[in-house]
């Protein structure tokens, strides 16, 4: 049942990669299996849990509902493209400081979703933050510490005078 093969070129975390892939290969399986970037997690394979969220040309996308061939020519950003264990990115540091993760399985998808929402939403209230997190399931935290981490990032963003460009 294997289908056609396609050559794709993708920039992943700033690095250009070229591969020949089956047309049905999921982006999540491409990242994890072909590129060995196992930071992107797969929780449901039907687009509900959000654990597999990556940025596709800066927009959050479910890598389990995206085919690798759809990423041809695109820039993909995964959790591995954020900070490192020695130098966490501010968002990662906020998650650590607020204990916004427990088992860590949903966390990479949460982080990528948060990057998108911090860039595109005002997030003036906790209710707006909860609403924006609504597409990512976390079974461990009850979300409260995640909300606190995001709130701290919103405060820093707004203090720095950066504004979120509302996406239509």
């Amino acid at each position: 049942m294997s289908g056609g093969m396609h050559d794709i070129r993708v920039t992943v975390n700033g690095r250009a990669v070229a591969h020949r892939v089956e047309d049905r290969l999921l982006l999540s399986d491409f990242l994890r299996g072909v590129l060995g970037l196992t930071g992107t997690h797969v929780g449901c394979e039907h687009g509900v849990c959000g654990a597999c969220t990556v940025l596709l040309d800066d927009v959050s996308a479910r890598s389990c509902l995206t085919l690798a061939v759809q990423a041809d020519g695109a820039e993909v950003r995964t959790v591995e493209g954020l900070g490192t264990a020695e130098a966490l990115a501010p968002l990662q540091e906020a998650f650590r400081a607020h204990h916004a993760l427990q088992c860590g399985f949903c966390t990479p998808g949460m982080l990528m979703t948060c990057i998108d929402m911090l860039a595109t939403r005002r997030l003036a209230t906790d209710e707006e933050i909860r609403d924006a997190l609504g597409g990512n399931l976390c079974r461990c935290t009850g979300y409260e510490h995640i909300v606190a981490a995001v709130r701290s990032m919103v405060a820093a963003r707004d203090a720095a005078g950066e504004t979120a460009g509302e996406r239509p």
Binding site: V79, G83, R96, G104
Partner: peptide, 12 residues
């Protein structure tokens, strides 16, 4: 803060 977090937050 937890010692586990650095690896979990960086996909490691």
């Amino acid at each position: 803060p937890r010692v586990e977090d650095a690896r979990l937050l960086t996909g490691r």
